[in-house]
Amino acid sequence: MAHRITKNVERETKLELTVNGKPVCAYAGESLATVLLAEGITIFNLTHSGKPRGLYCNMGTCFECQVKVHYLGSTQARWRRACMQTVQAGMQITTGISLSNLQSDQYED
């Protein structure tokens, strides 16, 4: 499993969010990709034909790392590249679902 480097690194505030419904702690400044890998998640989404995919380039060009993100205070979840998106408190992330998925759930505000 992936792990955060602790030697010579100081991280600031901790944030809370959920990954597939489970509460998870992350550090401010982390990308969603980091949080997901640290949680042991390798499959980020399923292709239209149902094949699992995980992140590849970690620089925003390959679009393999998309996950569904719901932001606090919004009514919809959106597909985001996990490697390009910084964590925010209260985010709800869903992984492992099909890219064909238009709107997984309706969220209450």
Binding site: S98, L99, S100, L102
Partner: peptide
Amino acid sequence: NVTEKTAPL
């Protein structure tokens, strides 16, 4: 204009 693919809509 073309959007990404999505489930039958």
